[in-house]
């Protein structure tokens, strides 16, 4: 059995960031493995550990060289090998929409021919929440979105989909399938020192769009990034300033006025 996990290195913006044109300068960005993908990696590694047969877990990312650090974290946690897709065309794209990103990932998946693809519900930066299901459609695989529980047999994935308002949907999909993994589905491990050492020796292939047989035009998904801005503050909050003691005094007044612990 083969499991493919899609992992994205996401950027968080620092508390005091600035915007220049259509980008946020590097010094305001901190990079990390996307939280949702961390759970997907754990789910994949657990499948490999729990099943009697041999399970190969392959990670795929579309990202610059810097993202290898993130991919190595996945390798350190037990992923067997990884593929990173990058080239000038990707580097120059200001925005790759979810269906186009899915097309790129699909080219890797077609070459790998996995039984199961795990991706995250959403990427913390762009937050399209759409790439996994688009990938399933490109591959003509079955799928399930927002999965917070997974049981697998040779033919079927039985999942719980987390709907709104504390309701879960119990669904079965036949393999091969793409599942988008929700946080909380498991307890992601930390990489061990041994794992980190081993990760350095694991295979990490780099591919261009051309290597994957893709025309650069796959990125032309008719989406154009035209603006990046700090949102106008809608806040009409009264902000208390000063020392912790001063602000606590102010909060005390608000709380007592609202009836908290009124004696």
């Amino acid at each position: 059995m083969k499991v493919l996990v899609t992992v994205k290195e996401v950027a968080n913006v620092a508390d005091d960031f600035e915007i220049e044109g259509l980008t946020i300068p590097e010094q305001f960005l901190e990079y990390d493995l996307n939280e949702w993908d961390d759970y997907a990696v754990e789910a994949a590694v657990q499948i490999a550990e729990d099943r009697d047969e041999d399970v190969e877990v392959v990670a795929v990312t579309v990202g610059p060289e810097r993202s290898e650090e993130t991919v190595r974290m996945a390798l350190a946690k037990g992923v067997d090998r990884a593929v990173r897709v990058w080239d000038d065309t990707l580097a120059e794209a200001a925005l790759v929409g979810p269906t186009a990103m899915a097309r790129v990932l699909a080219a890797v998946a077609e070459a790998e021919d996995p039984d199961l693809v795990l991706s995250g519900v959403q990427a913390a930066d762009d937050g399209f929440g759409a790439t996994g299901v688009a990938l399933a459609e490109h591959l003509e695989y079955a799928w399930a979105a927002v999965v917070n529980d997974l049981e697998l047999d040779d033919e079927t994935a039985s999942v719980r989909r987390e709907l709104e308002g504390g309701v879960e949907e119990l669904t079965s999909v036949p393999l091969p399938a793409v599942l988008t993994i929700q946080t909380g589905i498991n307890d992601p491990r930390y990489a061990s020192l041994r794992g980190i050492r081993q990760a350095q020796r694991k295979e990490l292939d780099v591919r261009t769009l051309a290597d994957l047989g893709l025309d650069p035009a796959v990125l032309d998904d008719d989406l154009t990034l035209t603006g990046l801005a700090r949102p106008e503050s809608e806040s009409d909050a009264t902000l208390f300033e000063g020392s912790a003691a001063d602000t606590a005094d102010d909060l005390e007044t608000v709380l007592r006025d609202a009836g908290v612990s009124a004696e």
Partner: peptide, 9 residues
């Protein structure tokens, strides 16, 4: 970016 940036597409 967690609602810290507004993007126009």
């Amino acid at each position: 970016y967690g609602s810290k940036v507004e993007t126009t597409v």
